[in-house]
């Protein structure tokens, strides 16, 4: 985002009062291998899912803390976004899914040898959650375990 002072009063107010978790320290896992030898997984908070999967809901208090599996070989045609907020401009994603979920870019980087390989699945969560507890305690660790079981070593996270 541009700097807060350059935003409209409404947006600035929403962002300034957003209930972020605050931390003093940071967990740290160094990559075990160079990226060109590593398996990478995409994880997004753009509220994406396969067309025939259940959309995320906007009527859950604190936000929808579930997640969806998107196979890394999915086509953009098969992916929908149910982050139906009017707080962001959807037209960029209508034009190009890579602007929030860079699956094509990852395939290109794998072909170029910059990235070792893509893990079989990407995972998608909903964004703008006001209550992250279930993410921290349940669905986040569950996806971490699935990623590890599927051989992912590096995770690239993209918002919307």
């Amino acid at each position: 985002m541009p700097k807060l002072e350059r935003l409209s009063a409404v947006v600035r107010q929403v962002l300034t009062s957003f209930p972020c978790l605050e931390a003093d320290d940071t967990p740290w896992t160094p990559p075990t291998r160079e990226l060109k030898h590593s398996n990478l997984a995409l994880v997004t908070s753009a509220g994406l899912h396969l067309r025939d999967d259940k959309p995320f809901a906007a009527d859950v208090k604190g936000g929808d803390t579930s997640y969806r599996v998107i196979p890394s070989d999915a086509k953009a045609t098969d992916i929908l976004q149910s982050h139906t907020s009017i707080g962001f401009d959807h037209t960029a994603i209508y034009r190009d899914l890579n602007v929030t979920f860079p699956l094509d870019r990852m395939r290109e980087l794998t072909a170029r040898g910059v990235v070792g390989g893509l893990a079989p699945n990407a995972y998608s969560f909903m964004g703008a959650l006001r209550d992250m507890r279930r993410i921290v305690e349940e669905t986040g660790p569950e996806v971490a375990q699935r990623l590890k079981d599927e051989g992912a070593e590096v995770v690239f996270l993209t918002p919307t």
Partner: peptide, 22 residues
């Protein structure tokens, strides 16, 4: 998004995320 990065990193995955709100 950045909360998920912490959860994954704590579970033993190396993460990097794109951040929108500094």
């Amino acid at each position: 998004m950045s909360v998920l990065a912490r959860v994954f990193e704590a579970a033993g995955l190396a993460t990097v995320c794109i951040a929108m709100v500094r």
